[in-house]
Amino acid sequence: MAGATAAPARTTPDLSAGAAAAAAGRFGRAVIFPGWRDLTGTLTTAEVLELSAIDKVEVLGSGPADPSARIDTGGFVRPQYRLGELVLTTTPAAGGLLVPFETRDPTPCCANH
């Protein structure tokens, strides 16, 4: 697995199991990882996999993204480690594009209610 830190995780006792899993690369979000700076603009799934340490690109609820699928990164990509693989989850967007499921500025839950 590329990009995981070897530094020990320091946290409160109630969070130590999750921190240990993230430090071991089993589970957790990746913010800085090899190639993250290159993931800007619109790229194909194949380009995302080639340019970065991301192992898989998935479409939420649909499985693996087609290698030719275009992903509008919005300059913000937050893949997750799942069992030692770095996985970017995407969702369909306007214009036949995919976008990362996690956005830089998420809509607050129950906004304007």
Rank of each mutant, 00 (worst) to 15 (best):
S52G: 04
G61K: 06
S68T: 14
P34C: 07
A53I: 10
I54L: 05
K56E: 06
E58Y: 12
K56A: 02
L39V: 04
L60N: 10
R70V: 05
G61L: 09
V57Q: 05
T45Q: 01
A53T: 04
P67R: 04
T45V: 10
L43Y: 05
E50G: 03
S62I: 02
R37F: 06
G41E: 08
A69D: 09
G35T: 08
R70Q: 15
A69P: 00
L51H: 13
R37M: 12
L51D: 08
E58C: 02
I71L: 01
I54A: 01
V48K: 05
G35M: 14
G63T: 11
G35D: 15
A53N: 07
D66N: 12
A53Y: 01
E58F: 09
L43A: 11
R70K: 15
D72F: 04
E50H: 08
A65H: 10
A65P: 03
A46E: 06
A53K: 00
L49Y: 02
E58N: 09
D72R: 12
V59S: 02
T40K: 11
L43H: 12
V48Q: 00
V48G: 01
S52Y: 02
L60Y: 12
L39A: 03
T45F: 00
A69F: 01
G63D: 11
L49K: 06
A69E: 00
K56V: 02
L39T: 01
T40F: 09
T42D: 14
E50A: 13
D72W: 04
V57C: 04
E47Q: 15
L49E: 03
P64S: 13
A53S: 14
E58A: 07
T42V: 15
D38N: 13
S68W: 07
T44N: 14
D66I: 08
T42H: 11
I71F: 07
D55V: 07
P64Y: 09
S52M: 06
G61M: 07
T44W: 10
V48C: 03
L43Q: 14
E50N: 05
P34R: 05
L43I: 13
S68L: 09
R37N: 08
A46W: 00
W36K: 04
G63A: 12
E50F: 07
V59E: 05
T40S: 12
S62C: 09
V48I: 14
T44H: 13
P67N: 09
G41M: 04
V59Y: 06
W36Q: 06
A69H: 02
W36T: 04
G63H: 11
D66W: 04
D55R: 08
G61I: 06
P64I: 03
S68G: 08
K56T: 02
V57N: 11
P64W: 08
P67Y: 07
V59R: 07
A65C: 13
S52K: 03
P67C: 06
R37D: 14
E50V: 03
T42A: 14
A69S: 07
L43N: 10
P34L: 05
P64H: 12
E58T: 09
R37T: 14
L51S: 11
P34I: 09
E47F: 11
K56F: 02
S52V: 09
S62Q: 15
A53P: 02
G61T: 03
G41V: 01
I71V: 11
P64E: 13
E47P: 01
T40L: 07
G41K: 06
T44V: 12
T40N: 06
E58I: 07
D38H: 12
A46L: 04
